[in-house]
């Protein structure tokens, strides 16, 4: 036993992420074995070591199981409408560029009903971090098919199996202009934490996809076992491939999961571009927009 660990006061067990959470709202609504809470833990750890002024961090969620994340974090938090976290976040960030704006929502919310906003927020390169929890179905409403459901997987609205081509989200994000794109799973807690931290540091539209088990509605219906079985699946079937061509990282039903940091580049943000453009256009008459 080291000196350090001897100093821990065991009479007051604390979790270092507690200070980032609204503990008065616990217990949370997520099912046993759900991966969303794990990702929140990663996010809290990323915040803890990010050096960010937490007063200036805002979190915006849409609707759904992941949409509830905003409400559990002790930050300025906005639980908006279904699919519209990104345009809300765009308004928030552009109104006050000093804020670090994080969008934290699910696959259905951000890429089905919110798909149009996703591609445009990435295109504009608005400075924000998007954390997308992909559990392959709509959880809150009972396990319906999503634009991320793999071909062959069943969902409550595809009882015979899904035949629609799903999105390859890293490829979508990169092709629309994201400056940072990574994918991890709820099994890869250290990698996911690091990816979130990197994304938070990035200027521009940064995107982290985290695959998370939904034992209640996805795993059970597809006879994939419980949350732990799904974590074992991630452990055994993930391949870390940093800088992989995002075209090649699409997901199939229980197939190989390519994880890693795929994109990390720099380009002017929306506000950088606007200020540079108008400064050139108007010269001294223009004061750079600062919110």
């Amino acid at each position: 036993m080291t000196e350090e660990s001897m100093d821990i006061d065991m009479s007051m067990p604390t979790n270092t992420v507690e200070e980032f959470l609204r503990m008065e709202r616990m217990p949370h609504i997520w099912c046993p074995g759900c991966g969303i809470g794990t990702t929140v833990n990663c996010f809290a750890h990323a915040l803890e070591t990010s050096g960010l002024d937490l007063k200036k961090v805002s979190i915006v969620s849409g609707i759904g199981c992941t949409g509830r994340v905003a409400g559990y974090l002790k930050l300025d938090s906005f639980h908006t409408t279904h699919g519209r976290a990104l345009p809300f976040a765009t308004g928030l960030k552009l109104a006050n560029p000093d804020l670090k704006v994080v969008v934290y929502s699910g696959d259905g919310d951000l890429t089905a009903i919110g798909g149009n906003h996703f591609i445009h927020a990435a295109r504009r390169n608005v400075d924000m971090t998007v954390i997308l929890i992909n559990n392959f179905i709509y959880g809150m409403t009972g396990g319906q098919v999503a634009p991320t459901t793999p071909i062959g997987a069943t969902a409550s609205t595809t009882p015979y199996g899904n035949f629609e081509e799903p999105f390859n989200l890293p490829y979508l994000a990169e092709s629309c202009g994201a400056v940072y794109v990574a994918r991890w799973t709820a099994y890869h807690v250290r990698h996911a934490t690091k990816a979130i931290k990197d994304a938070l540091r990035k200027r521009g539209f940064s995107f982290v996809e985290i695959l998370a088990p939904c034992p209640t509605l996805y795993s059970r219906r597809n006879r994939l076992g419980d949350g732990l079985d799904q974590m074992k699946f991630y452990r055994d079937n993930s391949e870390v491939k940093n800088d992989a061509d995002t075209k090649t990282v699409g997901l199939s039903f229980q197939g190989k999961v390519i994880v890693g940091k795929f994109v990390d580049k720099d380009k002017p943000t929306y506000l950088d571009s606007m200020n540079a453009f108008y400064a050139q256009k108007f010269g001294d008459k223009y004061s750079p927009y600062k919110g």
Partner: peptide
Amino acid sequence: PLIGGMFIQMEDEIASSIAIQGAVWGGKKA
């Protein structure tokens, strides 16, 4: 641009009608 305002043409009216609400919570009149 010359009075310190922010105009953004959004991708649709749904986005416009919530971007303004983000902006209000960011401190603007919108």
